[in-house]
């Protein structure tokens, strides 16, 4: 039953305090006309009594238009994604593939992409694990600022990331760093492979940090605290109790960083250039092939990247299955 006059008392009962005396109430403390057990209290004024169910049943509008609206609006976008990828696959052919793969430039680009993505994923973990841990576990002054800084690479336009890196390496400290790096390794950074990796790393690491934060957030701090009382140093508690629990999160972070690195284009173009046999990665290949009117090769390489991306997606989903809150991790990292 749902008698509106019941509400004040119900609310009072919920808070555990008695309602103030009211002139509206009868001696039994109930409101006139209040119903108990579905029966009408007879010795009260009829105006406040609940009506017996003689009136027409309340008409409820059909749910069909709502569901239809949901289906049309959601279906539109999902279909668009599928159609877009489907036409890629339809456009290309095995001949296009073999022709693309026969090109030494494209072979170099595949190898450089694999190499740079693997290295970027590893480097991203090197900073994401400690940063994720610090940001979930340690309180320090200026934490909000650091938090905001960590999101900058995610929201910054990719071209700006590349340009900013370029400017950084034209400053005095940047030049010093590059000349030191060059004397140690014999490699340039700007317009060279290390530049490709740094450009990928700047963005990929930010996504890895987000994933690691979400992972550490899921692990109760109590576990570490108990480990500390059981005789662990901070490092031991981290290594023996925390790290074994974040294995999947680390793999997910690495995979997301890897996928981000594979798709990176703007920063690489500006900071490392698009020189064939030198700084050409798969996204650069698509751009270069397209710019010389070789659409078949561009689409073949795109399809290759789509296939890899879908493989990565499946991997992340599978890794996410084991997490208690898969949605918090698997959804991250696939932006523009």
């Amino acid at each position: 039953m749902s008698d509106p006059t019941n509400k004040p008392e119900a609310a009072a009962a919920a808070t555990g305090s008695a309602p103030p005396p009211s002139p509206l109430r009868g001696e039994d403390g109930r409101y006139p006309g209040q119903v108990r057990g579905g029966r009408t209290n007879n010795n009260v004024s009829p105006g406040l009594a609940t009506q017996p169910a003689t009136s027409q049943p309340h008409h409820v509008a059909s749910d069909a238009p709502f569901y239809a609206g949901l289906a049309i609006l959601s279906g539109f976008y999902v279909l668009l994604i599928v159609a877009m990828l489907g036409s890629d696959f339809a456009y290309t052919s095995p001949e296009h593939f073999s022709k693309a793969l026969a090109s030494p430039e494209i072979r170099y680009s595949i190898l450089l992409s694999l190499f740079s993505c693997n290295l970027t994923a590893m480097l991203s973990l090197v900073v994401a694990v400690p940063l994720g841990y610090v940001m979930t576990r340690v309180a320090f002054p200026g934490k909000a600022v650091v938090d905001a800084i960590l999101d900058i690479p995610v929201v910054l336009p990719p071209l700006v990331v590349g340009l900013s890196l370029l400017i950084l390496f034209r400053t005095a400290p940047g030049r010093l760093f590059e000349s030191t790096f060059e004397s140690l390794t014999g490699m340039h950074i700007t317009y060279a492979v290390p530049g490709v990796i740094l450009a990928q790393f700047m963005v990929a690491a930010a996504f890895a940090v987000r994933t690691m934060r979400a992972t550490f957030d899921q692990i109760p701090i109590r576990h570490e605290q108990v480990a500390l009382t059981l005789g662990c140093s901070r490092w031991q508690a981290f290594r023996l109790v925390v790290l074994p629990q974040v294995g999947r999160g680390v793999l997910t972070a690495a995979t997301i960083a890897w996928a981000r690195a594979l798709g990176e284009f703007g920063p690489i173009l500006i900071f490392a250039g698009a020189t064939r046999h030198r700084t050409e990665v798969l996204s650069t290949t698509v751009f270069l092939e397209l710019s010389i009117g070789n659409i078949e090769s561009a689409v073949a390489v795109s399809v290759l990247m789509v296939a890899v991306a879908m493989g990565v997606l499946i991997l992340i989903r599978t890794l996410g299955q084991g997490e208690r809150r898969p949605g918090s991790i698997s959804g991250r990292g696939f932006g523009a």
Binding site: P220, R222, H223, Q225, L228, T229, G231
Partner: peptide, 21 residues
């Protein structure tokens, strides 16, 4: 002193057992 040096045993409300062990 740090927790490890105090010689206390701690049983938290939710047990907080190490799930990977």
């Amino acid at each position: 002193l740090r927790p490890a040096e105090r010689g206390v045993g701690y049983v938290p409300q939710d047990a907080a057992l190490f799930a990977t062990m």
